[in-house]
Simulated assay, not measured.
Amino acid sequence: MTALELATAAAVFLAGGMVKGTLGIGLPLVAVPLLSLVIPATQAIVLVAMPVLVSNAWQAVESGNLQGLRRFLPLIATQLVTTLLTVPMTLALSPRTLNAVLGAVVLLAVVLLCLPLRLQVAPTRERWWSAGIGAFSGAMGGVSSLTGPLIISYLASLRLPREAFIGSISLIYLGSAIPLYGSMAAHGRLGGTELLLSTLALAPVACGLTLGKRLRSHLSETWFRRVLLVFLTVVAVVLALK
């Protein structure tokens, strides 16, 4: 990466951290498509590895609610399988095609965040719903690393308490991130250099998280989310046309 690309990446991770600090979600949703405007999409996916792994592991432990691992095991299991199946196909795509796919996934994410699911999932059917959601989100994650919007909509439909929601979604994110980045490493896309750069990205992400927390107390979350969605729509269209 050139000096300009490194500076751009630092600014992107700062922005991603601010979004996560303000909304509690959205780090890869912001960082991956923005980085893909200046570097190859596969490299962008790799660079978010450490921020995603560290932030979600920390949130999972901090929540103290690890029971979600057993409850959402069907989701995590199918997500793992489809992630591993999708990553090799993703790596075989041309940069132009992958940008178009990533743009489409970002647009789908925007739609899901604008129109959250209003499901009524019976406890007796939750395991089947979880398995299906896991399969679809794993395919999305294998292509773009963006599993968040679908998982958020599904967990919101289950009306989980706040701490249970945070603990469960962090575990699910880890369940998708570990096979994704493990597969990237196995295919030679996550080496020592990429791992070092991804680790260095923790610094601007931490600064962004701090700024986001301060911003949250001064800015309406509703308006911030609207601006973010409009911004992501523009980025998705640019990616699709790139």
Rank of each mutant, 00 (worst) to 15 (best):
A31H: 06
A31G: 08
V32D: 04
L34S: 00
L34D: 07
L37V: 09
L37Y: 05
L37P: 13
I39G: 00
P40D: 03
T42F: 02
Q43N: 08
A44T: 00
I45L: 01
I45E: 00
V46F: 00
L47F: 11
A49Y: 06
A49D: 03
V52N: 01
V52S: 03
S55V: 02
A57I: 06
A57P: 01
W58G: 04
A60Q: 08
V61E: 12
E62Q: 13
S63H: 13
G64M: 12
Q67F: 10
Q67Y: 09
L69Q: 02
L69H: 06
R71N: 00
F72D: 05
L75S: 12
A77P: 08
A77M: 15
A77G: 09
Q79E: 14
L80C: 15
L84F: 11
L85D: 09
T86V: 08
T86H: 06
P88M: 09
P88L: 05
M89C: 13
M89A: 15
L91A: 03
L91E: 03
A92L: 07
L93F: 08
S94V: 06
R96H: 09
R96A: 11
T97S: 05
L98I: 03
L98V: 00
A100R: 11
L102C: 10
L102R: 07
G103H: 10
A104Y: 14
V105C: 08
V105S: 07
V105P: 02
L108I: 14
A109D: 03
A109R: 02
V110G: 04
V111R: 01
L113N: 08
L113V: 04
L115P: 06
P116M: 02
L117Y: 05
L117T: 07
L117M: 12
R118C: 10
L119C: 01
L119G: 07
Q120C: 10
V121D: 01
V121Q: 04
P123M: 04
